[in-house]
Design a protein around this nucleic acid. Structure first.
Lengths: 142, 142
DNA sequence: CTGAATCCCTGCCGATACTG
DNA sequence: CAGTATCGGCAGGGATTCAG
């Protein structure tokens, strides 16, 4: 994340994981309730951690944003983000593939061509990035 | 970031910053449009980066979640998150104060007592964490 | 009680060079 | 074209200790 590292923990003893936004018994609809909100340490199976882990790392959100606009080849991503090194780009892509956000489409022939596109799961990151944007854009207000 | 570090960049040459979700000219309402979406490097003034920076660091979201449930003293936070060291807890708190998410309430007397509560801006992180939760909870679906 | 200071270890990420 | 291999610098964060 940038740093940070929103990385995974060494693993708590056990028990039900959790960690969630905050909503009482009468919170928003469709949400798991309090049981999961009682976690006392970062758990890699907490939904919030899962998402942050998927977006983890510098450049990651920019790569995702680029693909939200459509399928991209490796070199197109490279061109769109000139300051991003090969190492980090391929790191990010394989990480996103592992996270189920992105699909590889390796096409036969020469020269080699590989296209990347978001999975349907990946597309649903749109609203997440939107929420992140919205909050950040409010910075000065109030 | 996790571990990653969603940290700040070394600073691109200049020019208009940006980086946003993804929405064409006919995207969702209330959103800034393409100009800001053309950034080619992580910019610390991009709304998405701002939010990720605010939530940056291990334990940060748990600390915020704890305070979404109400005002807390230092030791209450400590007790709620036993595995969190003093150093990191105070790091997180001062970081959140700087980010405008949390307010300190230092009460006179002895022993010293300090209460922390979310600012109104901080309260608005609720929907953000909600979005993060929602996506992460969908992991297996499809 | 509420922190700040220090130490050390680990993992990120940038640059460069090289392979299929 | 699309990556992997390697190396080095630096920041994150855990434990411990000390201070207001």
């Amino acid at each position: 994340m940038t740093h940070r590292t929103v990385g995974h923990p060494s693993g708590p003893p056990a028990g039900p994981p959790g960690h969630h936004p905050a909503n009482g018994p009468s919170g928003p609809p469709g949400l798991p309730d309090d049981p999961l909100a009682q976690v006392t340490a970062p758990a890699s199976d907490c939904p919030v951690e899962i998402t942050l882990a998927a977006l983890h790392g510098r450049w990651t959100t920019l790569v995702v944003r680029e693909m939200l606009r459509g399928e991209r080849s490796y070199s197109e991503l490279r061109d769109a983000l000139p300051a991003l090194s090969d190492k980090v780009l391929s790191d990010r892509l394989s990480h996103l593939v592992t996270a189920g956000v992105v699909e590889r489409d390796r096409r036969p022939g020469w020269p080699a061509r590989v296209h990347y596109r978001l999975t349907s799961h990946g597309h649903r990151l749109g609203p997440v990035l939107q929420a992140l944007w919205d909050w950040g854009a409010q910075a000065g207000e109030d």
